[in-house]
Structure formats: C-alpha cells, structure tokens
C-alpha cells in the first residue's frame, strides 16, 4: 500500500513529467493558453494514461517483446480516439477548445514512456496508481502554466476577471512565445530551489561530519 501511495506522490512532485522529467512537452506548450484548457487537456491525458497503463499491464505477458511498441501504440490510439469521440458527443465546448490536441495525445511520449518503463513490468494495481500520479502531475503542471499565461495574457483566471480594466494584457503570454517563457522560468525556479536545497543539505552533512570528527 505504501508503494502505491508513493507512486501517486512521485508523479505529482519528485518525478513530475512536465517540470522534472520534461517529457511530453507538446501539450504544456501548445494547449496552455488558459487555465481551463490546461486542466481539461491534463484530465484527458490522465484518463488515457490510466486506461492504457491498465490494459498494457494486464496483457504484458501475452504481448511478445518484438511487437510490444506497435501493440502499445494501437492500445493508446484506441483509448485516445474513444475519449475524443466521447468528448465530442458529451462536452462539445471542451472538445472544441482542445481541437487537434486530443488526437495528438497518441504521440505524447509520457504515455508510451510510462507503458514501456512502468506498466509493462509492474502489477496492474501499481500501473493504475502510477498512471494516476503521472496523470495528475501532468494535469497540475498544465493548469499551473495555463493560470500564469491566462492571468498575464488576458487578466483573467478560469474566465473570471482578476485584474480590472486598467490592466494592459501581455498579449505575448497567450501566443506561442509566452509558453516558452513561462515554461523556462518555472523550470529555472524549480531547479534553482532544488540546487539551493541540495547545497544546504550538503553543508549540513559536512558540518555533521566535522562534529562527529571532533568528538572522535
């Protein structure tokens, strides 16, 4: 059970696909013009990830090694197309926002990556928790980028006005360059904080060593 919980938490922070592993970078850059589209894209990807990981984990013994990649791709593409059809039928407004990026989930390397590196080696229950963790990690990352770009690029958050009329929108934030700027600065900040913390830990460890040395 501990392992399952760890799977979820790992995907959220320590091995966040977008901010730490930097895989599946197309949607974080392309669909995060608003918080809402980031959130929906993240959830759609999570659904595909959990479904495909489950199936791949279930049938891992039946799929021969040589044809595993084409088999995974067909399984992933099937789920993506199903989700695309369901979105089109039930929530057309959402489907319209995401447009071409739903079919493109097929080639999101996050999903194939988790299938290859995790689901195909682990029991079904852990494949599900891993998919959930990675998916939610991807979702919050996309939503976070979307929030920043929407807030600065349009002065709104989830469609609600945040800044008053006096605010001049930084239009570039909603254009493609804004995605690169936001992404770059977030990764920069996270790495900076990570490095500082690592250095602090090192220092603490060294001090500890000195103390131990003196005592000896």
């Amino acid at each position: 059970m501990q392992k399952h919980l760890d799977d979820v938490v790992r995907g959220l922070f320590r091995e966040n696909p977008t901010f730490r592993m930097l895989i599946g970078m197309c949607p974080p850059l392309a669909v995060t013009t608003s918080a809402e589209s980031g959130l929906i894209m993240g959830l759609a990807t999570t659904a595909v990830l959990i479904c495909s990981s489950t199936i791949i984990s279930l049938f891992k013994k039946l799929i021969p090694q040589q044809v595993r990649i084409p088999a995974y791709i067909v399984i992933i593409a099937t789920f993506v197309t199903m989700i695309d059809l369901v979105l089109a039928a039930l929530v057309p407004a959402v489907h319209k926002i995401l447009g071409i990026f739903v079919p493109l989930i097929v080639v999101n390397c996050l999903i194939l990556g988790r299938a290859e590196a995790f689901a195909s080696r682990m029991p079904v229950s852990r494949a599900i928790t891993d998919g959930l963790g990675m998916g939610l990690g991807f979702t919050w990352a996309l939503t976070f980028i979307g929030c920043i770009r929407e807030l600065l690029g349009a002065g709104t958050l989830f469609g609600a006005t945040v800044f008053g009329d006096g605010f001049v929108a930084w239009r570039i934030m909603q254009l493609p360059p804004g995605a690169f700027l936001t992404m770059g600065l977030i990764v920069f900040t996270l790495n900076l904080v990570g490095n500082l913390r690592a250095r602090q830990l090192q220092k603490a460890a060294r001090n500890q060593m000195k103390v131990v040395g003196k005592e000896a």
Binding site: L62, V67, A71, V74, T78, T81, L85
Partner: peptide
C-alpha cells in the same frame, strides 16, 4: 498478436 490487438481495437472504436 498484433492482428488480435488491432481487431479488438477496431471493434471497440466501431461501437463507440
């Protein structure tokens, strides 16, 4: 194997 995977996938998509 691949044929089966593709056939099941096709059937599911047809239904949806």
């Amino acid at each position: 194997t691949l044929g089966l995977v593709a056939a099941i996938s096709g059937g599911m998509l047809g239904l949806f």
